[in-house]
Design a protein around this nucleic acid. Sequence first.
DNA 1: TCCTATTAATAATT
DNA 2: AATTATTAATAGGA
Lengths: 152, 152
Amino acid sequence: MGTGKKKIEIKRKEKQQDRMVAFSKRRKGLFKKAHQLHALSAAHIAILVFSPAGKPYVCGDPCFDDIVDKYYSGATANAAADDNDVVNCNNRSTYGDGNDADEDCKEIGELKLWLKRMDFDGSDNVDDLLLAKNDLEQVRDKLIKNVADYGE
Amino acid sequence: MGTGKKKIEIKRKEKQQDRMVAFSKRRKGLFKKAHQLHALSAAHIAILVFSPAGKPYVCGDPCFDDIVDKYYSGATANAAADDNDVVNCNNRSTYGDGNDADEDCKEIGELKLWLKRMDFDGSDNVDDLLLAKNDLEQVRDKLIKNVADYGE
DNA sequence: TCCTATTAATAATT
DNA sequence: AATTATTAATAGGA
């Protein structure tokens, strides 16, 4: 995937500057797609992005806060549970303060997010498999590092 | 804009069924773009969409709730104020409250289910991590093979 | 759903 | 930033 003069691997770019360039171009594209989706289908859409530099960008059709409010009001929050198309990863992890138990929870929570996002069970196309491959490689690297940290 | 056999106008489709078709295709595309943006730039991304039928779809990299929390916590909320690309309308809503420790305990239970599905246990000691590492490597190799088989 | 003609998004380069 | 070669997304139809 990718679109441009060359096919690129979808993986974290090494240099901060490259990440910022990719972010700028693709954030713009993402918001445009979101706006189109709203205009065509009348769906309500809320997007929140933090740039690599930590700057927030918000996009809402018709309004970010209202849509998020509606979601957290819970009236319909469980309706998506049975839809296998849904990419739904809501997993709270504690950031910080750090007693050991909490740290472990955080590590495990992050790992879980990675695994859940892979969702390669039903993938039958090259793109999904490639994404899963990338994710797996990163999870593996994380594990290797954790093991090393434990004194392996 | 649009991409397909014909250029289309970006305006609300008249028939509900047409809106649903466009929504299904484009929601998938939007989430894919979001995942790519995250993978490439390490940006944090949260998307919430209500379909024309009112069904919610959530996408979060790395986690929807955490990103939204971070935004509403306000630590960085004002950083975007000077960016003219930002569509920014804030109205805080309260939700959740549950204490973090309890939330994490629930998370651990869910995690173990996930890890079992992945064919390895989710312990946090070195031996189990090593086993997990081996399992992940095998899964990864499987995926790489699958990708090769698809002719990538 | 799947297919494919066509357009839109974007990676590399300037 | 602006341009352009190329790929990816998708509109319409099977």
